[in-house]
Design a protein around this nucleic acid. Structure first.
Length: 574
RNA sequence: GCGCCGAUAGUGUAGUGGUUAUCACUAGGCGUUGCCAACGCCUAAACCCGGGUUCGAGUCCCGGUCGGCGCACCA
């Protein structure tokens, strides 16, 4: 068993040494919050993203789009990031500590500090002591620190742009186009995988908190009154541990239950949220997150955004960092679409025709303008509007027009009962949003699959990555570097490559050393060509985790490896 | 950002202000080796950056960068 305090060092050491993850631009001294994915890390990341795509695009049918990482200011005014993503900060003139100005004020029982403007805060906190050095702050400048990277678009800095702090907004701003694409029907979903940026004040914890990170987000637009997932049955009986608000309040451990139960008992708000909780569990486990180190925690009322109906985090356990939020699944209601409606002046709604147009009996008031006009002159329009908005009785009605009460007698209007046909209704969809932090998933997969064991008095380090996640899927070795064995091994490697399988050929040094090298980078299978191969065209196929070997014919190798990677065959069956 | 600690080949390390910077692993080459980091020979490879003190700095001092811990911050 590996001491948990060491695990991060061991993972990052391996990641650095073997080309998974590097500090960025080391030759100039790297920058905190940024990392480079090396060759193996890049491939592993792409594999995980492609598994994600299998779940969301192939299986759910939600197509992917790709939007710019720089967005104009209006987008982030609408999303609330310009305002809500910034903190009022100040610097203590004595100890040069950066402080949250509103926190300083609230620390001295000053109410409403978080809503104050910079100037107000300056006058409030100047008489307060610095929480760090205890000196009275004195006159300080309060400034806004926004977590978004700001830039300008075009020359002359006329136009403010921001590096996106999440990929979601691109999907919202494309809503009308997407709605057309999906031919005006609900529900539909759209996904995006890409970089997002947050200028963290002080990023620590290596790849857990990055300033540039990769998100995979899905936005699923649903009818507000129909939050039943059409394929809920797929996961209805899927059982997993849920740490709901009541469990957290009572300090209990997560409750294991099926998604059906979770929805019926009202622990999860609706089928959609429950469905993506289960899908996320399924996805994370399939990329190699250990189920024992995975839990789903519901946001407490005070950490949940005010508009969100329900919100859950998939948290993975790290020996170093504890429970780390890795995926967020939220029912964001119509908040985002309404925000963009308001900012842009465009309509972000779906017109949904009724199956049969509804006939509605309606009472309509028709003002007699011929009579109202001469009588009320300039106020006639106001009277007519007020009249239409109410239902007058048989004796007429008393209205207050421009401060004066007037009696409108029945001869000034006509009340007509009519049947109108309503073809459908316009609704603003609700958004279900599963949002994945790819970099954290990669770290979790590395940590959960790293093993050290002693084999014949030698330490063996293994990354037990699922075959579909491993950067290199198969290694091909000639047992000896002569007698025609390298040629046969080369042919096998080529045959694998022509089937789209990433195969690494290696003929250097002892066979055991070559196996161990592949173990450390998670290559699930190794093929060794030996002297028997020349006689009977069979090779040894070795399994990384069990170190077991089987003999198999050369010609079936590409198909066999393909099915082992896909999971349609497992090594133990061979 | 603040405070404390650290930084030497790819990795882990040794190194009282004074030779050509130690050792192991790793990597590359050759030989050997008939399936799990074997062995032999050879080779490559480092003092984080910038100032200062000193005849002389990997070593002492100052500043920076990066990393760790604590604080603060963290849609």
């Amino acid at each position: 068993m590996i001491a948990m305090s060491d695990i991060y060092e061991k993972i990052m050491d391996l990641a650095k040494r073997r080309g998974f993850i590097w500090p960025t631009s080391e030759c100039y001294g790297s920058v905190a919050g940024f990392i480079d994915y090396g060759p193996l890390g890049s491939m592993m990341k792409r594999n995980i993203e492609n598994i994600w795509r299998k779940f969301y695009i192939v299986s759910e049918g939600y197509y992917e789009i790709e939007c710019p990482t720089i967005g104009q200011e209006e987008i982030y005014i609408a999303s609330g990031h310009v305002k809500g993503f910034s903190d009022k900060m100040c610097q203590c003139p004595h100890c040069r500590e950066y402080l949250r100005a509103d926190h300083v004020a609230e620390g001295h029982q000053i109410q409403g500090a978080s809503a104050m403007k910079s100037g107000e805060l300056e006058s409030v906190i100047c008489s307060l002591p610095c929480p760090a050095c205890e000196e009275v702050l004195g006159p300080v400048e309060v400034f806004s620190f926004n977590l978004m990277f700001q830039t300008t678009i075009g020359p002359g800095s006329q136009r403010t742009g921001y590096l996106r702090p999440e990929t979601a907004q691109g999907i919202f701003t494309d809503f009308q186009r997407l709605l057309r694409f999906y031919r005006d029907k609900l529900p539909f979903g759209t996904v995006q995988i890409g970089k997002s940026y947050r200028n963290e004040i002080s990023p620590r914890q290596g790849m857990i908190r990055l300033r540039e990170f990769t998100q995979a987000e899905a936005e699923i637009f649903v009818h507000p009154a129909e939050k039943n997932h059409p394929r809920f049955h797929r996961y209805a009986r899927y059982e997993m541990p849920l740490l709901g608000v009541p469990q957290q309040m009572a300090g209990l451990s997560p409750l294991s239950m099926t998604m059906q139960e979770a929805v019926e008992k009202g622990i999860v708000a609706n089928e959609y949220v429950a469905y993506y909780l289960a899908l996320t569990h399924d996805l994370l486990v399939s990329i190699g997150v250990s189920p024992e180190r995975l839990r789903f925690r519901q946001h407490l009322p005070d950490e949940r955004a005010h508009y969100a109906e329900d919100c859950w985090d998939a948290e993975v356990f790290s020996g170093r960092f504890g429970w780390v939020e890795t995926v967020g699944i939220a029912d964001r209601t119509d908040y985002d679409l309404r925000a963009h409606e308001q900012q842009s002046g465009e309509r972000f709604a779906v017109f949904l025709p009724y199956e049969i147009p509804r006939r509605i009996n309606r009472v309509r008031v028709i003002p007699n303008m011929g009579a109202l006009g001469p009588r009320f002159r300039g106020s006639a329009k106001a009277v007519a509007d007020a009249l239409c908005a109410c239902v007058p009785g048989p004796e007429g009605i008393s209205l207050t027009i421009e401060g004066k009460e007037v009696l409108i007698t029945p001869d000034l209007y006509e009340v007509r009962e009519e049947v109108v046909e309503v073809p459908g209704e316009e609704i603003t969809p609700h958004v279900i949003e599963p949002s994945y932090g790819i970099d954290r998933m990669i770290y979790a997969v590395l940590e959960h699959n790293y093993h050290e064991e002693i084999v014949d008095d030698e330490e063996r380090r293994v990354l037990s990555l699922p075959a579909a996640v491993a950067p290199i899927q198969v290694a091909v070795f000639p047992l000896m570097n002569r007698d025609g064995l390298p040629e046969i091994a080369g042919e096998i490697a080529d045959a694998l490559r022509s089937r789209g399988i990433l195969a690494e050929y290696d003929d250097s040094g002892a066979i055991g050393r070559r196996y161990r090298r592949q173990d450390e980078i998670g290559t699930p299978f190794a093929i060794t060509v030996d002297y028997d191969t020349r006689e009977d065209r069979t090779v040894t196929l070795r399994d990384r985790d069990s170190m077991r070997q089987v003999r198999t014919g050369i010609d079936g190798i590409p198909d066999l490896i393909r099915s082992l990677i896909d999971g349609t065959t497992s090594f133990v069956e061979l």
